[in-house]
């Protein structure tokens, strides 16, 4: 028996919003520790890695490890039926071919259940090597979303360049070019608005705007985002989801011809 209950359905709704542009289907691997999802998009340019820890749920029970293959557009349709303040419970029997979502209104006067067919997905677990990154940049997630949106008007790529002076985001195309430079903040009123840079070596890499914009769909999950870069390896864009886990996106850089 698998059962996971969240007091607010909004976290699960936001998680779905944050992955459904990249993935059409994915396996939720559930064990004692919580729920893990790891999948590459169809073109193998990006990878999503989601962790929801068991201790972040209001109730969590997983008697046997279970892999729930879900069609994410179907799951998204079902989660749209939940009110933001509803409690959501995901349930599946061992060896089940369906998963059930139960939504309860705050006063318990409305209880809905939705049963969804599971999919048999080929399990391809990827080992993500431990990497020491040359640069890590922490900034407001809303600021990062705005930068990606603004620069997308200029071209298909964003160049991210991190030095000890700060981080620069650049784009260029038919209408001209744009540069946004952020310096490390000396002092801020709100910690989540700080720009914090840790740099061992300067790094400059080029990434596709389209994917960065997909990643920023996770903005509402976390006030801050962390970018990790090293030469010639995938960028990591991490949103920590308060009290329950994180979503990490990996993106292969563009290569100079």
């Amino acid at each position: 028996m698998f059962e996971a209950r969240l007091l607010r359905s909004s976290i699960l709704k936001k998680v779905l919003e944050a992955i459904k542009d990249l993935l059409t289907q994915a396996t939720f691997d559930c064990d004692d520790n919580g729920i893990q999802l790891q999948a590459m998009d169809n073109s193998h340019v990006s990878l999503v890695s989601l962790t929801l820890r068991a201790d972040g749920f209001d109730k969590y029970r997983c008697d046997r490890n279970i892999s729930l293959g879900m069609n994410l557009s179907s799951m998204s349709k079902i989660l749209k039926c939940a009110g933001d303040k509803d409690t959501v419970t995901m349930k599946a029997q061992d060896n089940a071919d369906t998963v059930t979502f139960v939504f309860e209104s705050p006063n318990q006067e409305k209880v809905s259940d939705y049963e969804m067919k599971l999919m048999n997905l080929d399990l391809e677990h990827l080992g993500i090597p431990e990497t020491e990154y040359s640069c890590t940049i922490r900034l407001s997630s809303a600021e990062f979303a705005r930068i990606c949106r603004d620069l997308s008007q200029f071209g298909e790529s964003i160049v991210i360049s991190c030095t000890k002076e700060g981080v620069r985001f650049s784009a260029s195309g038919d209408i001209g070019s744009a540069n946004i430079a952020l310096a490390q903040t000396a002092s801020v009123d709100k910690e989540e608005e700080a720009v914090v840079i840790e740099m061992e070596e300067p790094v400059t890499l080029t990434f596709a705007c389209q994917y960065l914009n997909y990643f920023t769909k996770a903005t509402s999950l976390s006030p801050q985002v962390q970018l990790s870069m090293s030469a010639d390896v995938p960028l990591v864009v991490e949103y920590r989801i308060p009290d329950i886990g994180h979503i990490r996106y990996y993106l292969a850089p563009k290569i100079d011809d």
Binding site: L126, S157, Y250
Partner: peptide, 14 residues
């Protein structure tokens, strides 16, 4: 110009 890289090769199938 630039070409979009792929993740294959960075991550090993377990």
């Amino acid at each position: 110009g630039t070409t979009q890289g792929r993740l294959d090769g960075f991550f090993k199938v377990q």
